[in-house]
Amino acid sequence: MKLREVKEILDANVIVGEEKLDMEVKTAFGADLMSDVLAFAKAGSLLLTGLTNTQVIRIANVLDIAAIILVRGKKPPMEALELAKDLHIPILTTKYILFETAGRLYTRGIVGCLEKVEK
């Protein structure tokens, strides 16, 4: 689906990347543990998280994450926002909790970037 549809499903605000709403996304990864995001998230996925520090943006850049969805109504600090703009990474914020955010996207066809870990 298009990022625009993700925005609608989550009743989200686009804080960065309004011009990228036509981007196609198919998969997502959700976690607040950045170590696990680095280990498991796949390129082109949405990143669902409640963490808002600048490292989240740097990690999204490193991993070629399509867009960051901040859950539980979290707002990023100014530095994170500026960095996301520089690196052209869209940020959406939604008031839904992580569980609801994931569930709403899943029922509409977005799947996990992996189903389960190997061991």
Binding site: A43, Q55, R58, N61, V62, L63, D64
Partner: peptide
């Protein structure tokens, strides 16, 4: 400043037009 060097290195490798997956692995 943590992560700035990785962002930099990623952009250098991208400019060399190396395959996305190679650039991504290097950046990680």
């Amino acid at each position: 400043k943590a992560g700035t060097v990785s962002t930099r290195i990623k952009s250098i490798l991208k400019h060399r037009q190396l395959p996305d997956e190679i650039v991504r692995r290097s950046a990680i």
